[in-house]
Structure formats: structure tokens, C-alpha cells
Design a protein around this nucleic acid. Structure first.
Length: 447
RNA sequence: UCCUUGCUAGCUCAAUUGGCAGAGCGAGCGGCUGUUAACCGCUAGGUUCUAGGUUCAAGUCCUAGGCAAGGAGCCA
């Protein structure tokens, strides 16, 4: 009886007889032999069936086997440099094949290119394609590595609510729902405020879950539902926060490089660029970043690009500005000390410079832009209350949040990291929608 | 919300100045013992997004609408 194995482990079974269960990804028939590229979820492997080795009727069926047919194949593993697949370099000589289901001939996802509309309408099938499979495997490892680093560094996983009574950062971008007799509830766009409560009980915490933004953003960097990691740390200032971010991200990259190299290579990712991502990352004050942009604008010869780089102190950075800054570096870059006016109400003012706050964005290289946003939070009760009133936020809703500043308040900091953005950058893909299994965008809730 | 672009075979796209609706992939049939998104031969496959309009003639021009994408703003 042959051992049932997963394709990812195939290198351990050379010259042995094995059984694999999977789906026909591609078929090439050559008359008296057939190549089946079979995927089993863990990898892709080439199976070769020779006419003489199989019952003529079975061979005839194999030769016509439609793409996506489900099969159970038993055969012997051999090394062969010619064999495609992931990991590749191994193939199975078919001795027995059970066709579990012959797939319909009208399978719409051919292995050629597809437009975004068609691909997204068929997302339930598109995820079977090698590129999408590879991206989503990387995503899973990004998530696992993130949790691993935090769990090993004293952080406690806390789940924050998804149904919330009020907005942290204004109500215009919230999804709204009826909540029994309590009026409106909103889908959370951050767990931060709850995490600020959690740190006074647990010290260092994180939440990791879906967040929802009803922003009418239609760009390759936006989803309406995305997964965000949010660590929050008591007794931590802005410098300490940046250290956590760069250490964690370095760990994530290292583990992905260790465990998902075949996937990254299959995506055509330039691995050497990822190998350079090691802490510490450069830290640039907002004022200096603004100067850097001015200098880069001066050097820019293309008038169109020059126009896009127009900038005045006090503005938040747009995508062209972020790209200009990050193009100067090979690792992600911290930009800190943004003007308070463009940032959220809860950010601690810079000592001696009240127009600036202790905020920090982490910008990924190669044009991927902001992947983390964080800050030191206001720890003084009256200062926070003044900000809430200035922003005309509902004071009642923030009663509990203000109370945190009355009973043992301490300097504390936290940040949010967008999992799909990090995954997109690591994979080097064009669009964030491919970094989540079933993307939700402003124009799409199907499938 | 605004700006730009696109919509032709199942998919990706072509169609010159307004003048016979085309190709590759996919599908079917046939061939091939090493293919890498194989290749070669043959076959089938069309309400050119919708509704009007101009014209001898509209995929192409005009009007209105629909859908999608990219970008801006906002953000992770």
C-alpha cells in the first residue's frame, strides 16, 4: 500500500511509491504519454502516464481528462530536472489513477491572462491558479509569523469588538447597522481604543482581525474589508514603538523567505530585494521628509511628475510623495512627527511643537507606501478631552476611553499594520485585491 | 464625489479614412514517447454593453444611459 503524501513533502519520497490526491491543473498529451500537472493544495507536481503502463481504456480517459478533474494517483517518485511544479524537479510515474470526478469542459479559468472583472467574478475558481495560490500561502505565513513574534515577545492576544457604538476617527467611513433597541451600531474600523483599555490590564496586547472602512476609495491599495494587526504597548514611547515595528517586520520577512521561497519565486519576486529588509530602518522627521520631497521635485524633469510632487508643509503625503521618499532607500522607512491637523485626535503632541504630533508611518519600498501607521497616544486626561471637544466628537461615547487617563495613566503607543498591504509588497503584486481570498471593494461583494 | 480610460467569440485582444467580423488561447476531432501556459492540421463558436440618432453604409461618428478599471481625496 503506497503512502499518502502531500506534494510539498515530495522530496522525501524519491524512488518510493506514493499516493497523491488532487486536481488536474494542466494536461499535455503527447500521443503515447500524458503529462498531468496535479495540484493538491500544498504544491504542484508533474505526473507522467505512459500508454503501456495503464489499461488502454483508462489511458484514453486520462488523455482527455479535463482541467480541474479530481484524481487520486499512485505511482513512484523520481527526480527529474525537467519536471515543472512547486517545489518542482520531481515527478510521479503513474501506476494507478482513480478519477474522482471528470470536471466539466466549460471550466472558465484558462491558464492564460484574465481581465480583473472576469477574474474577480470567478474568484472562487481564480484562487486555484498558481499565482493566487502562492500569494494566499504567503499571506497565511505573514499572519502566522506576525502572531509568532508577538506571542514570543510578551504580547497578549485580545479580541476587540467588531460591533461598536461609535467611531474612533469620525463616522463618515463607517458601515452602519441597526442594533436592536440600542440604535445604530458600526462595524469596527480599528480595535485601538479597546486595546488602550486592555494594556492597563495586560501591559502589551494586540488584536488581529477584520476591519471595515466605507471609504469610497478605488485604488490598488484599498479594500473595504481588510485584516489589521494592532499592537498596543504600555510604558512605550515613539522610539520604542518604531523598534517593535522594525523587529516584527524583519521577523515576518525572514520567516516568509524561509518557508515560502518557492511561492515567491513562482510569482517572479526579486528575492534579493526582500533579503535586504533587516532592522533597523531609517527614521525621518516629517520636516526632513518635506525637504527631501522638495529636493526630489527640483531634480524631476518630467513636468507631470513634478506637478504630482507639489508639496507644502502641513500636508499629508500622497502616494507620489511616499514613492519619492521610499525610492531613496532599500528598506522600509519610518516617517514620524506629522502635523497634528492631518492625524487623529488621540495622538500625543510633540513637546515644544504643538502643531506636530508623535505619529509614525512605516512606508514600504518599491512604491508600496504605507504599511503601518501608529503613534504615541495622549496620556493626559484634560489634553485628550480638549481634543475630543475640538473635533466635536460625541463626549458620551468616549466616557470610558477618557476614564483610562484617570486611573494610572502612562505613556503608551501602538500601531496598525495592514496585512494585505504587507502581503502585496512581499509578493510584489500589482493589486491588493489579490492578497485576500475574497476581496471586498466599493464595487464588489460577490462572490 | 471628481478626473481619465475601456466595453467586439467562453477568455485575452485586433479590425487602416465610416466600406465583407478577425487572431491566439480555451472547446471538439486527428497526429506526435519529454511537455513546461507544448506543438502541427482540421472543425464549431458573434444581438460588437443598452437605447436612440446621422449615413447608401456604423464595431468605428453623435446623444443618453449602464457596467468595469486606474487615479485623486481619505486611509492600513
Amino acid at each position: 500500500m503506497a503512502e499518502y503524501i502531500s506534494v510539498s513533502k515530495i522530496s522525501n519520497y524519491v524512488e518510493k511509491e506514493v499516493t497523491i490526491k488532487g486536481w488536474v491543473y494542466n494536461r499535455t498529451d503527447k500521443g503515447k504519454l500524458v503529462f498531468l500537472l496535479v495540484r493538491d493544495g500544498s504544491g504542484f507536481v508533474q505526473c507522467v502516464a505512459f500508454k503501456g503502463d495503464l489499461d488502454p481504456e483508462v489511458f484514453d480517459r486520462v488523455m482527455r481528462l479535463p482541467q480541474e478533474s479530481s484524481v487520486i494517483i499512485t505511482g513512484s517518485v523520481r527526480e527529474d530536472k525537467r519536471a515543472p511544479g512547486i517545489p518542482g524537479g520531481y515527478e510521479v510515474g503513474v501506476k494507478q489513477i482513480e478519477i474522482v470526478q471528470e470536471a466539466g469542459l466549460d471550466y472558465p479559468m484558462s491558464l492564460k491572462d484574465h481581465g480583473p472583472d472576469f477574474a474577480l467574478d470567478n474568484r472562487h475558481l481564480w484562487i486555484r491558479m498558481q499565482s493566487q495560490w502562492a500569494i494566499l500561502r504567503v499571506r497565511a505565513t505573514v499572519m502566522a509569523a506576525t502572531r509568532e513574534w508577538l506571542d514570543n515577545n510578551g504580547f497578549i492576544a485580545m479580541d476587540t469588538p467588531i460591533l461598536t457604538p461609535a467611531a474612533a476617527e469620525g463616522t463618515t467611513t463607517l458601515f452602519e447597522t441597526e442594533y436592536f433597541d440600542e440604535g445604530k451600531a458600526y462595524l469596527a474600523q480599528t480595535g485601538q481604543l479597546y486595546n488602550e483599555a486592555n494594556i492597563f490590564a495586560f501591559g502589551k496586547v494586540y488584536c488581529f482581525g477584520p476591519t471595515f472602512r466605507a471609504e469610497k476609495s478605488k485604488t490598488r491599495r484599498h479594500l473595504t474589508e481588510f485584516w489589521m494587526l494592532e499592537p498596543e504597548i504600555a510604558f512605550c514611547d515613539l522610539d520604542g514603538l518604531m523598534e517593535v515595528e522594525e523587529q516584527m517586520l524583519t521577523h515576518i520577512i525572514q520567516r516568509v523567505l524561509r518557508e515560502r521561497l518557492p511561492e515567491l519565486k513562482s510569482l517572479g519576486r526579486d528575492i534579493s530585494k526582500l533579503e535586504k529588509i533587516v532592522a533597523p530602518f531609517p527614521r525621518i522627521f516629517y520636516d526632513d521628509a518635506a525637504k527631501m520631497i522638495a529636493e526630489l521635485r527640483e531634480k524631476e524633469t518630467d513636468p507631470e511628475k513634478k506637478e504630482l510632487l507639489a508639496f507644502e508643509w502641513g500636508m499629508d503625503f500622497g502616494a507620489p510623495h511616499e514613492t519619492a521618499i521610499t525610492s531613496q532607500f532599500e528598506t522600509p522607512v519610518f516617517v514620524y512627527g506629522y502635523p497634528s491637523a492631518v492625524k487623529a485626535f488621540y495622538m500625543e503632541p510633540w513637546p515644544g511643537r504643538p502643531e506636530v504630533c508623535k505619529s509614525v508611518d512605516l512606508l514600504a519600498p518599491e512604491g508600496y507606501g504605507e504599511i503601518c501607521g501608529g503613534s504615541e497616544r495622549i496620556s493626559d486626561h484634560d489634553a485628550l478631552l480638549a481634543r475630543i471637544r475640538k473635533e466635536k466628537l460625541p463626549e458620551d461615547a468616549f466616557k470610558w476611553y477618557l476614564e483610562l487617563r484617570k486611573y494610572g495613566s502612562v505613556p503608551h503607543s501602538g500601531f496598525g499594520m495592514g496585512i494585505e498591504r504587507v502581503t502585496s509588497w512581499i509578493c510584489g503584486i500589482e493589486h491588493i485585491r489579490e492578497a485576500i481570498a475574497f476581496p471586498r471593494t466599493i464595487k464588489r461583494v460577490y462572490p
